[in-house]
Design a protein around this nucleic acid. Structure first.
Lengths: 230, 230
DNA sequence: ATGCAGAATACTGTATGCAATCATCCTCGC
DNA sequence: GCGAGGATGATTGCATACAGTATTCTGCAT
Protein backbone atom coordinates (compact mmCIF):
# COMPACT_ATOMS: atom_id res chain seq x y z
CA UNK A 1 0.00 0.00 0.00
CA UNK A 2 1.19 3.55 -0.69
CA UNK A 3 0.59 4.44 2.94
CA UNK A 4 3.67 5.39 4.89
CA UNK A 5 4.55 2.69 7.42
CA UNK A 6 5.42 5.37 9.96
CA UNK A 7 2.11 5.29 11.78
CA UNK A 8 1.66 1.74 12.99
CA UNK A 9 0.41 2.27 16.47
CA UNK A 10 -1.41 -0.99 17.08
CA UNK A 11 -1.57 -4.34 15.39
CA UNK A 12 -0.05 -3.76 11.96
CA UNK A 13 3.51 -4.71 11.20
CA UNK A 14 6.12 -2.07 11.85
CA UNK A 15 9.32 -3.71 10.79
CA UNK A 16 10.56 -3.24 7.24
CA UNK A 17 11.91 -6.78 7.60
CA UNK A 18 10.36 -9.80 5.84
CA UNK A 19 6.64 -9.55 6.30
CA UNK A 20 5.94 -13.29 6.45
CA UNK A 21 8.17 -13.57 9.49
CA UNK A 22 6.40 -10.73 11.23
CA UNK A 23 3.05 -12.26 10.33
CA UNK A 24 4.20 -15.63 11.64
CA UNK A 25 5.24 -14.10 14.95
CA UNK A 26 2.04 -12.11 15.20
CA UNK A 27 -0.16 -15.14 14.58
CA UNK A 28 1.70 -17.37 17.07
CA UNK A 29 1.31 -14.63 19.63
CA UNK A 30 -2.41 -14.38 18.87
CA UNK A 31 -2.78 -18.13 19.28
CA UNK A 32 -0.77 -18.32 22.49
CA UNK A 33 -2.54 -15.47 24.22
CA UNK A 34 -5.91 -16.87 23.22
CA UNK A 35 -7.07 -14.23 20.76
CA UNK A 36 -7.45 -17.08 18.29
CA UNK A 37 -9.18 -20.00 19.94
CA UNK A 38 -8.61 -23.67 19.06
CA UNK A 39 -10.80 -24.86 16.23
CA UNK A 40 -11.37 -21.36 14.93
CA UNK A 41 -11.45 -20.93 11.19
CA UNK A 42 -8.74 -18.55 10.03
CA UNK A 43 -9.90 -16.61 6.99
CA UNK A 44 -6.97 -15.33 4.99
CA UNK A 45 -8.62 -12.09 3.90
CA UNK A 46 -9.66 -11.36 7.46
CA UNK A 47 -6.18 -11.84 8.85
CA UNK A 48 -4.76 -9.82 5.99
CA UNK A 49 -7.00 -6.90 6.82
CA UNK A 50 -6.28 -7.25 10.53
CA UNK A 51 -2.53 -7.08 10.02
CA UNK A 52 -2.63 -4.63 7.16
CA UNK A 53 -0.97 -6.83 4.55
CA UNK A 54 -2.11 -8.81 1.54
CA UNK A 55 -3.06 -12.48 1.52
CA UNK A 56 0.30 -13.62 0.18
CA UNK A 57 2.39 -13.22 3.37
CA UNK A 58 -0.55 -14.60 5.33
CA UNK A 59 -0.56 -17.78 3.25
CA UNK A 60 3.17 -18.29 3.66
CA UNK A 61 2.93 -17.77 7.39
CA UNK A 62 0.05 -20.23 7.61
CA UNK A 63 2.18 -22.82 5.84
CA UNK A 64 4.88 -22.46 8.46
CA UNK A 65 2.31 -22.50 11.25
CA UNK A 66 1.03 -25.75 9.80
CA UNK A 67 4.40 -27.48 9.81
CA UNK A 68 5.00 -26.17 13.32
CA UNK A 69 1.73 -27.74 14.43
CA UNK A 70 -0.09 -24.57 15.39
CA UNK A 71 -2.79 -24.81 12.73
CA UNK A 72 -4.42 -27.56 10.71
CA UNK A 73 -4.49 -26.86 6.99
CA UNK A 74 -7.34 -28.61 5.21
CA UNK A 75 -7.22 -28.48 1.42
CA UNK A 76 -9.67 -26.16 -0.28
CA UNK A 77 -11.10 -25.40 3.12
CA UNK A 78 -8.57 -23.24 4.87
CA UNK A 79 -6.68 -23.04 8.12
CA UNK A 80 -7.99 -23.87 11.57
CA UNK A 81 -6.30 -23.27 14.89
CA UNK A 82 -5.13 -26.65 16.12
CA UNK A 83 -7.17 -28.21 18.89
CA UNK A 84 -4.90 -30.10 21.25
CA UNK A 85 -6.17 -33.31 22.76
CA UNK A 86 -5.01 -34.80 26.01
CA UNK A 87 -3.46 -37.74 24.14
CA UNK A 88 -1.51 -35.38 21.96
CA UNK A 89 -0.22 -33.47 24.98
CA UNK A 90 0.98 -36.70 26.50
CA UNK A 91 2.66 -37.71 23.25
CA UNK A 92 4.24 -34.31 22.93
CA UNK A 93 5.62 -34.52 26.44
CA UNK A 94 6.93 -38.03 25.87
CA UNK A 95 8.76 -37.03 22.70
CA UNK A 96 10.10 -33.93 24.37
CA UNK A 97 11.37 -36.09 27.21
CA UNK A 98 13.35 -38.26 24.83
CA UNK A 99 14.84 -35.36 22.92
CA UNK A 100 15.70 -33.34 26.02
CA UNK A 101 17.30 -36.35 27.62
CA UNK A 102 19.49 -36.79 24.58
CA UNK A 103 20.42 -33.12 24.56
CA UNK A 104 21.36 -33.22 28.25
CA UNK A 105 23.83 -35.98 27.46
CA UNK A 106 25.31 -33.95 24.64
CA UNK A 107 25.53 -30.86 26.81
CA UNK A 108 27.46 -32.73 29.48
CA UNK A 109 29.91 -33.84 26.82
CA UNK A 110 30.52 -30.44 25.26
CA UNK A 111 29.86 -27.75 27.85
CA UNK A 112 32.67 -25.37 28.83
CA UNK A 113 32.92 -23.41 32.11
CA UNK A 114 31.49 -20.22 30.53
CA UNK A 115 28.58 -22.28 29.21
CA UNK A 116 27.89 -23.58 32.69
CA UNK A 117 28.07 -20.06 34.11
CA UNK A 118 25.41 -19.03 31.63
CA UNK A 119 23.24 -21.92 32.77
CA UNK A 120 23.50 -20.75 36.37
CA UNK A 121 22.46 -17.28 35.26
CA UNK A 122 19.36 -18.70 33.62
CA UNK A 123 18.68 -20.77 36.71
CA UNK A 124 18.81 -17.58 38.78
CA UNK A 125 16.35 -15.91 36.41
CA UNK A 126 14.00 -18.81 36.84
CA UNK A 127 14.18 -18.71 40.61
CA UNK A 128 13.42 -14.99 40.57
CA UNK A 129 10.38 -15.57 38.38
CA UNK A 130 9.32 -18.39 40.66
CA UNK A 131 9.57 -16.17 43.72
CA UNK A 132 7.53 -13.50 41.96
CA UNK A 133 4.88 -16.05 41.07
CA UNK A 134 4.73 -14.90 37.47
CA UNK A 135 3.58 -17.96 35.52
CA UNK A 136 4.48 -16.48 32.16
CA UNK A 137 7.98 -15.55 33.29
CA UNK A 138 8.46 -19.00 34.80
CA UNK A 139 7.56 -20.74 31.57
CA UNK A 140 9.77 -18.38 29.62
CA UNK A 141 12.76 -18.93 31.89
CA UNK A 142 12.19 -22.66 31.77
CA UNK A 143 12.16 -22.58 27.99
CA UNK A 144 15.31 -20.45 27.93
CA UNK A 145 17.16 -22.86 30.21
CA UNK A 146 16.16 -25.93 28.24
CA UNK A 147 16.94 -24.16 24.98
CA UNK A 148 20.42 -23.36 26.18
CA UNK A 149 21.03 -26.92 27.25
CA UNK A 150 19.99 -27.96 23.76
CA UNK A 151 22.39 -25.42 22.32
CA UNK A 152 25.21 -26.80 24.41
CA UNK A 153 24.63 -30.26 23.01
CA UNK A 154 26.16 -28.90 19.80
CA UNK A 155 23.64 -30.80 17.76
CA UNK A 156 22.10 -28.65 15.04
CA UNK A 157 19.40 -31.16 14.20
CA UNK A 158 18.36 -31.37 17.81
CA UNK A 159 18.37 -27.59 18.06
CA UNK A 160 16.12 -27.46 15.05
CA UNK A 161 13.68 -30.11 16.20
CA UNK A 162 13.24 -29.37 19.88
CA UNK A 163 11.82 -25.87 19.54
CA UNK A 164 9.10 -27.28 17.29
CA UNK A 165 8.02 -29.49 20.13
CA UNK A 166 8.94 -27.26 23.00
CA UNK A 167 6.98 -24.21 21.95
CA UNK A 168 3.80 -26.24 21.85
CA UNK A 169 4.60 -27.84 25.19
CA UNK A 170 5.15 -24.38 26.55
CA UNK A 171 1.63 -23.47 25.58
CA UNK A 172 0.03 -26.42 27.33
CA UNK A 173 2.43 -26.13 30.24
CA UNK A 174 1.41 -22.63 31.25
CA UNK A 175 -1.44 -23.62 33.61
CA UNK A 176 0.72 -26.00 35.64
CA UNK A 177 3.87 -23.88 35.69
CA UNK A 178 3.38 -22.46 39.15
CA UNK A 179 2.61 -25.56 41.22
CA UNK A 180 5.22 -27.59 39.38
CA UNK A 181 7.82 -24.84 39.55
CA UNK A 182 9.47 -25.46 42.89
CA UNK A 183 10.47 -29.06 42.30
CA UNK A 184 11.31 -28.41 38.68
CA UNK A 185 13.89 -25.77 39.44
CA UNK A 186 15.64 -27.75 42.12
CA UNK A 187 15.89 -30.57 39.58
CA UNK A 188 17.33 -28.09 37.13
CA UNK A 189 20.08 -27.27 39.59
CA UNK A 190 21.14 -30.91 39.84
CA UNK A 191 21.12 -31.25 36.07
CA UNK A 192 23.36 -28.22 35.72
CA UNK A 193 25.74 -29.71 38.27
CA UNK A 194 25.95 -32.92 36.29
CA UNK A 195 26.63 -30.96 33.10
CA UNK A 196 29.29 -28.92 34.87
CA UNK A 197 31.00 -32.11 35.99
CA UNK A 198 30.90 -33.42 32.44
CA UNK A 199 29.04 -36.56 33.44
CA UNK A 200 26.86 -37.55 30.45
CA UNK A 201 25.25 -40.59 32.05
CA UNK A 202 24.27 -38.73 35.18
CA UNK A 203 22.97 -35.69 33.28
CA UNK A 204 20.97 -37.95 31.01
CA UNK A 205 19.44 -39.83 33.89
CA UNK A 206 18.58 -36.65 35.80
CA UNK A 207 16.95 -35.12 32.74
CA UNK A 208 15.02 -38.31 32.15
CA UNK A 209 13.61 -38.15 35.64
CA UNK A 210 12.98 -34.44 35.36
CA UNK A 211 10.93 -34.71 32.18
CA UNK A 212 9.22 -37.80 33.52
CA UNK A 213 8.17 -35.88 36.61
CA UNK A 214 6.84 -33.07 34.49
CA UNK A 215 4.85 -35.47 32.36
CA UNK A 216 3.39 -37.25 35.37
CA UNK A 217 2.50 -33.96 36.99
CA UNK A 218 0.76 -32.81 33.85
CA UNK A 219 -1.23 -36.01 33.48
CA UNK A 220 -2.33 -35.92 37.12
CA UNK A 221 -3.36 -32.28 36.76
CA UNK A 222 -5.40 -33.07 33.68
CA UNK A 223 -7.01 -36.03 35.35
CA UNK A 224 -8.02 -33.97 38.37
CA UNK A 225 -9.61 -31.30 36.21
CA UNK A 226 -11.15 -33.76 33.74
CA UNK A 227 -12.81 -32.74 30.50
CA UNK A 228 -10.25 -30.16 29.42
CA UNK A 229 -9.64 -31.72 26.02
CA UNK A 230 -12.23 -30.19 23.69
CA UNK B 1 3.95 -39.09 2.94
CA UNK B 2 1.27 -41.30 4.49
CA UNK B 3 -2.17 -39.82 4.70
CA UNK B 4 -4.34 -40.58 7.68
CA UNK B 5 -5.25 -44.21 7.10
CA UNK B 6 -8.39 -43.87 9.20
CA UNK B 7 -10.34 -42.14 6.47
CA UNK B 8 -8.56 -43.60 3.47
CA UNK B 9 -11.13 -46.31 3.06
CA UNK B 10 -12.97 -46.31 -0.23
CA UNK B 11 -13.46 -44.21 -3.30
CA UNK B 12 -10.86 -43.22 -5.87
CA UNK B 13 -8.36 -40.73 -4.57
CA UNK B 14 -9.75 -37.48 -5.83
CA UNK B 15 -7.08 -34.86 -5.86
CA UNK B 16 -8.73 -31.58 -6.84
CA UNK B 17 -5.45 -29.94 -7.72
CA UNK B 18 -2.97 -29.78 -4.86
CA UNK B 19 -0.29 -28.34 -7.05
CA UNK B 20 2.00 -27.33 -4.20
CA UNK B 21 2.03 -30.92 -3.01
CA UNK B 22 2.93 -32.17 -6.46
CA UNK B 23 5.61 -29.53 -6.74
CA UNK B 24 6.96 -30.46 -3.31
CA UNK B 25 7.17 -34.12 -4.31
CA UNK B 26 8.75 -33.27 -7.62
CA UNK B 27 11.42 -31.09 -6.08
CA UNK B 28 12.32 -33.59 -3.38
CA UNK B 29 12.66 -36.20 -6.06
CA UNK B 30 14.90 -33.90 -8.09
CA UNK B 31 17.08 -33.29 -5.04
CA UNK B 32 17.30 -36.95 -4.09
CA UNK B 33 18.20 -38.22 -7.51
CA UNK B 34 20.80 -35.49 -7.92
CA UNK B 35 19.22 -33.39 -10.65
CA UNK B 36 19.54 -30.51 -8.24
CA UNK B 37 22.96 -30.52 -6.64
CA UNK B 38 23.76 -29.23 -3.13
CA UNK B 39 24.48 -25.51 -3.04
CA UNK B 40 22.66 -24.87 -6.28
CA UNK B 41 20.61 -21.70 -6.51
CA UNK B 42 16.96 -22.48 -7.16
CA UNK B 43 15.38 -19.75 -9.26
CA UNK B 44 11.64 -19.64 -8.83
CA UNK B 45 10.83 -18.66 -12.40
CA UNK B 46 13.08 -21.37 -13.73
CA UNK B 47 11.45 -24.09 -11.64
CA UNK B 48 8.03 -22.74 -12.54
CA UNK B 49 8.77 -23.04 -16.23
CA UNK B 50 10.31 -26.47 -15.73
CA UNK B 51 7.25 -27.83 -13.95
CA UNK B 52 4.72 -25.90 -15.98
CA UNK B 53 3.14 -23.95 -13.15
CA UNK B 54 3.30 -20.42 -11.87
CA UNK B 55 5.68 -19.13 -9.21
CA UNK B 56 3.10 -19.24 -6.46
CA UNK B 57 3.00 -23.02 -5.90
CA UNK B 58 6.78 -23.04 -6.27
CA UNK B 59 7.15 -20.54 -3.45
CA UNK B 60 4.87 -22.50 -1.14
CA UNK B 61 6.69 -25.73 -1.88
CA UNK B 62 10.04 -24.06 -1.20
CA UNK B 63 8.77 -22.95 2.19
CA UNK B 64 7.96 -26.54 3.08
CA UNK B 65 11.26 -27.76 1.70
CA UNK B 66 12.96 -25.23 3.94
CA UNK B 67 11.26 -26.42 7.13
CA UNK B 68 11.98 -30.00 6.10
CA UNK B 69 15.66 -29.15 5.78
CA UNK B 70 16.04 -29.79 2.07
CA UNK B 71 16.83 -26.22 1.08
CA UNK B 72 18.25 -23.15 2.77
CA UNK B 73 16.10 -20.08 2.29
CA UNK B 74 18.08 -16.84 2.43
CA UNK B 75 15.96 -13.69 2.59
CA UNK B 76 15.80 -11.59 -0.55
CA UNK B 77 18.23 -13.97 -2.15
CA UNK B 78 16.33 -17.13 -2.82
CA UNK B 79 16.52 -20.85 -2.16
CA UNK B 80 19.63 -23.01 -2.24
CA UNK B 81 19.81 -26.78 -2.08
CA UNK B 82 21.08 -27.70 1.35
CA UNK B 83 24.68 -28.88 1.55
CA UNK B 84 25.00 -31.62 4.15
CA UNK B 85 28.14 -31.85 6.24
CA UNK B 86 29.49 -35.01 7.85
CA UNK B 87 28.80 -33.55 11.32
CA UNK B 88 25.21 -32.95 10.35
CA UNK B 89 24.83 -36.51 9.10
CA UNK B 90 26.13 -37.83 12.39
CA UNK B 91 23.78 -35.59 14.33
CA UNK B 92 20.89 -36.61 12.13
CA UNK B 93 21.64 -40.27 12.71
CA UNK B 94 21.95 -39.77 16.46
CA UNK B 95 18.61 -38.00 16.70
CA UNK B 96 16.98 -40.59 14.50
CA UNK B 97 18.34 -43.28 16.77
CA UNK B 98 16.70 -41.72 19.80
CA UNK B 99 13.36 -41.22 18.10
CA UNK B 100 13.27 -44.66 16.50
CA UNK B 101 14.14 -46.28 19.77
CA UNK B 102 11.25 -44.54 21.42
CA UNK B 103 8.89 -45.53 18.63
CA UNK B 104 9.94 -49.18 18.87
CA UNK B 105 8.94 -49.14 22.52
CA UNK B 106 5.56 -47.66 21.63
CA UNK B 107 5.05 -50.17 18.85
CA UNK B 108 5.67 -53.08 21.18
CA UNK B 109 3.03 -51.69 23.51
CA UNK B 110 0.32 -51.12 20.92
CA UNK B 111 0.85 -53.55 18.05
CA UNK B 112 -1.89 -56.05 17.15
CA UNK B 113 -1.41 -59.34 15.29
CA UNK B 114 -2.47 -57.84 11.94
CA UNK B 115 0.04 -55.04 12.50
CA UNK B 116 2.79 -57.58 13.07
CA UNK B 117 1.75 -59.47 9.95
CA UNK B 118 2.14 -56.25 7.98
CA UNK B 119 5.63 -55.83 9.44
CA UNK B 120 6.61 -59.29 8.24
CA UNK B 121 5.33 -58.41 4.78
CA UNK B 122 7.55 -55.36 4.71
CA UNK B 123 10.45 -57.43 5.99
CA UNK B 124 9.90 -59.82 3.09
CA UNK B 125 9.92 -56.91 0.64
CA UNK B 126 13.21 -55.78 2.06
CA UNK B 127 14.80 -59.19 1.76
CA UNK B 128 13.69 -59.40 -1.84
CA UNK B 129 15.26 -56.03 -2.60
CA UNK B 130 18.40 -57.10 -0.78
CA UNK B 131 18.64 -60.27 -2.84
CA UNK B 132 18.18 -58.24 -6.01
CA UNK B 133 20.92 -55.86 -4.92
CA UNK B 134 18.82 -52.81 -5.75
CA UNK B 135 20.15 -50.08 -3.46
CA UNK B 136 17.23 -47.79 -4.07
CA UNK B 137 14.68 -50.48 -3.33
CA UNK B 138 16.55 -51.47 -0.19
CA UNK B 139 16.49 -47.95 1.17
CA UNK B 140 12.85 -47.61 0.26
CA UNK B 141 11.87 -50.84 1.97
CA UNK B 142 13.92 -49.88 5.00
CA UNK B 143 12.11 -46.55 5.22
CA UNK B 144 8.75 -48.26 4.81
CA UNK B 145 9.47 -50.70 7.62
CA UNK B 146 10.67 -48.04 10.02
CA UNK B 147 7.76 -45.80 9.08
CA UNK B 148 5.31 -48.55 9.90
CA UNK B 149 6.92 -49.18 13.25
CA UNK B 150 6.52 -45.48 13.95
CA UNK B 151 2.90 -45.70 12.93
CA UNK B 152 2.36 -48.60 15.30
CA UNK B 153 3.67 -46.55 18.20
CA UNK B 154 0.38 -44.65 17.98
CA UNK B 155 2.20 -41.43 18.64
CA UNK B 156 1.09 -38.69 16.25
CA UNK B 157 3.90 -36.38 17.27
CA UNK B 158 6.50 -39.01 16.58
CA UNK B 159 4.86 -39.83 13.28
CA UNK B 160 5.09 -36.19 12.37
CA UNK B 161 8.68 -35.67 13.46
CA UNK B 162 10.43 -38.82 12.33
CA UNK B 163 9.78 -38.48 8.60
CA UNK B 164 11.40 -35.05 8.72
CA UNK B 165 14.56 -36.69 9.97
CA UNK B 166 14.22 -40.00 8.23
CA UNK B 167 13.83 -38.76 4.68
CA UNK B 168 17.07 -36.88 4.96
CA UNK B 169 18.80 -39.88 6.50
CA UNK B 170 17.47 -41.91 3.62
CA UNK B 171 19.28 -39.64 1.23
CA UNK B 172 22.66 -39.93 2.94
CA UNK B 173 22.10 -43.60 3.62
CA UNK B 174 21.84 -44.60 -0.01
CA UNK B 175 25.56 -45.21 -0.63
CA UNK B 176 25.95 -47.59 2.31
CA UNK B 177 22.64 -49.40 1.91
CA UNK B 178 24.02 -52.45 0.17
CA UNK B 179 26.96 -53.38 2.39
CA UNK B 180 25.00 -52.65 5.55
CA UNK B 181 21.88 -54.38 4.29
CA UNK B 182 22.47 -57.96 5.36
CA UNK B 183 23.03 -57.29 9.06
CA UNK B 184 20.38 -54.59 9.15
CA UNK B 185 17.62 -56.87 7.96
CA UNK B 186 18.42 -59.68 10.34
CA UNK B 187 18.29 -57.12 13.12
CA UNK B 188 14.93 -56.00 11.78
CA UNK B 189 13.63 -59.53 12.16
CA UNK B 190 14.55 -59.65 15.84
CA UNK B 191 12.93 -56.27 16.44
CA UNK B 192 9.72 -57.46 14.83
CA UNK B 193 9.77 -60.52 17.06
CA UNK B 194 10.09 -58.35 20.14
CA UNK B 195 7.21 -56.18 18.97
CA UNK B 196 5.12 -59.25 18.30
CA UNK B 197 5.76 -60.49 21.81
CA UNK B 198 4.75 -57.09 23.20
CA UNK B 199 8.03 -56.66 25.00
CA UNK B 200 8.72 -52.87 25.07
CA UNK B 201 12.05 -53.07 26.91
CA UNK B 202 13.45 -55.68 24.54
CA UNK B 203 12.18 -53.92 21.42
CA UNK B 204 13.64 -50.66 22.64
CA UNK B 205 17.01 -52.20 23.36
CA UNK B 206 17.15 -53.99 20.01
CA UNK B 207 16.26 -50.83 18.14
CA UNK B 208 18.86 -48.91 20.10
CA UNK B 209 21.52 -51.37 19.04
CA UNK B 210 20.21 -51.46 15.48
CA UNK B 211 20.38 -47.68 15.02
CA UNK B 212 23.69 -47.59 16.85
CA UNK B 213 25.10 -50.16 14.45
CA UNK B 214 23.87 -48.15 11.49
CA UNK B 215 25.42 -44.97 12.85
CA UNK B 216 28.75 -46.65 13.52
CA UNK B 217 28.75 -48.23 10.09
CA UNK B 218 28.07 -44.88 8.48
CA UNK B 219 30.81 -43.12 10.43
CA UNK B 220 33.35 -45.81 9.60
CA UNK B 221 32.39 -45.65 5.94
CA UNK B 222 32.80 -41.89 5.88
CA UNK B 223 36.09 -42.14 7.73
CA UNK B 224 37.46 -44.64 5.26
CA UNK B 225 36.52 -42.43 2.33
CA UNK B 226 37.28 -38.92 3.58
CA UNK B 227 39.98 -39.78 6.07
CA UNK B 228 38.37 -37.82 8.87
CA UNK B 229 35.70 -39.39 11.09
CA UNK B 230 33.81 -38.19 14.14
C1' DA C 1 -42.84 -29.84 9.30
C1' DT C 2 -39.01 -32.12 7.12
C1' DG C 3 -35.90 -33.51 3.56
C1' DC C 4 -33.87 -32.46 -0.75
C1' DA C 5 -32.42 -29.74 -4.75
C1' DG C 6 -30.74 -25.71 -6.69
C1' DA C 7 -28.50 -21.36 -6.71
C1' DA C 8 -25.98 -17.72 -4.39
C1' DT C 9 -22.07 -16.73 -1.59
C1' DA C 10 -17.63 -16.91 0.33
C1' DC C 11 -13.35 -18.76 0.51
C1' DT C 12 -9.30 -21.00 -1.17
C1' DG C 13 -6.04 -22.08 -5.00
C1' DT C 14 -3.60 -20.24 -8.85
C1' DA C 15 -1.83 -16.88 -12.12
C1' DT C 16 0.01 -12.47 -13.36
C1' DG C 17 2.05 -7.80 -12.65
C1' DC C 18 4.81 -4.36 -10.30
C1' DA C 19 8.18 -2.41 -7.07
C1' DA C 20 12.16 -3.08 -4.04
C1' DT C 21 16.41 -5.38 -3.42
C1' DC C 22 20.55 -7.85 -4.35
C1' DA C 23 24.39 -9.42 -7.25
C1' DT C 24 27.33 -8.49 -11.02
C1' DC C 25 30.01 -5.89 -13.98
C1' DC C 26 31.68 -1.92 -16.09
C1' DT C 27 33.73 2.57 -15.65
C1' DC C 28 36.24 6.13 -13.39
C1' DG C 29 39.73 7.85 -10.30
C1' DC C 30 44.07 7.23 -7.81
C1' DG D 1 47.58 -1.68 -12.07
C1' DC D 2 44.24 -1.65 -8.45
C1' DG D 3 40.37 -0.20 -5.76
C1' DA D 4 35.99 2.34 -5.29
C1' DG D 5 31.68 3.82 -6.97
C1' DG D 6 27.76 3.60 -9.94
C1' DA D 7 24.86 1.56 -13.50
C1' DT D 8 22.43 -2.50 -15.15
C1' DG D 9 20.32 -6.82 -15.15
C1' DA D 10 18.17 -10.38 -12.68
C1' DT D 11 15.41 -12.17 -8.85
C1' DT D 12 12.75 -12.00 -4.82
C1' DG D 13 8.85 -10.03 -2.13
C1' DC D 14 4.35 -8.25 -2.21
C1' DA D 15 -0.10 -6.99 -4.15
C1' DT D 16 -3.96 -7.74 -7.10
C1' DA D 17 -7.03 -10.35 -10.21
C1' DC D 18 -9.34 -14.44 -11.73
C1' DA D 19 -11.07 -19.31 -11.58
C1' DG D 20 -12.59 -23.49 -9.09
C1' DT D 21 -14.82 -25.47 -5.17
C1' DA D 22 -17.00 -26.13 -0.65
C1' DT D 23 -20.61 -24.15 2.27
C1' DT D 24 -24.93 -22.16 3.17
C1' DC D 25 -29.25 -20.33 2.36
C1' DT D 26 -33.58 -20.50 0.11
C1' DG D 27 -37.44 -22.51 -2.08
C1' DC D 28 -40.17 -26.43 -3.19
C1' DA D 29 -41.97 -30.99 -2.98
C1' DT D 30 -43.24 -34.68 -0.02
Amino acid sequence: MPETPTVAARGPIIRPAPLRQAVYDALTELIINGSLTPGQHLVEAELAARLGVSRQPIREALQRLHTAGWVDLRPAQGAFVHSPTTEECAQLLSVRAVLETHSARGAAQHATPPDVARLWELQETGLTALAAGDARAIVEANAALHAHITHLSRNAVLAELIPQVDRRVRWYYMPIAKPRGKDAWSEHARIIEAIAEGDPDHAEELMRRHTSNTTDFYCRQIASVAGRGV
